Simulated scan of single mutants.
Amino acid sequence: MTKSMTCSYCGASDTILCKQPHGYSSVTPADKKMAFNGQTLYHDICKNCGTVVRSFINGPEKL
Rank of each mutant, 00 (worst) to 15 (best):
G11H: 07
I45L: 06
H22W: 02
D31L: 09
R54C: 02
Y42S: 10
S25D: 06
G59W: 03
A12P: 00
V53T: 01
T28I: 13
C7Y: 05
Y42W: 15
Y9G: 00
T6E: 09
N58H: 14
C10F: 01
E61V: 06
G59I: 06
M1H: 11
T6K: 09
A35N: 11
D44K: 11
P60W: 07
P21Y: 11
Y42A: 09
K32T: 00
K47E: 10
L41P: 01
V52C: 13
S55V: 07
Y24K: 14
I16K: 15
K33M: 09
C49Y: 03
Y9T: 09
P21E: 14
K19G: 07
S26K: 05
T6S: 04
S4P: 00
S13R: 12
K3D: 02
G59M: 05
F56Y: 15
S25H: 08
D31H: 10
K19C: 14
T2M: 03
K33C: 01
K19Y: 12
M5G: 00
L17K: 15
T28Q: 08
A12W: 00
H43S: 15
F36C: 00
T51E: 15
T2P: 11
C18Q: 14
T15H: 08
D44T: 00
K33I: 09
A30E: 13
G59K: 06
N58F: 12
M5Y: 15
P60E: 09
K3V: 14
F56E: 03
S4H: 02
S55M: 13
A35K: 07
M34N: 12
F36E: 02
C18F: 03
L41Q: 13
S8Q: 06
T2V: 11
S25Q: 02
E61G: 13
L17R: 15
A30L: 11
A30Q: 12
L41M: 15
F56V: 01
Q20I: 15
S4L: 12
C7T: 01
G59F: 04
V53D: 07
I16P: 00
P21A: 15
T6V: 06
P21R: 14
T40L: 02
Y9C: 02
C49S: 07
A30V: 10
D31G: 01
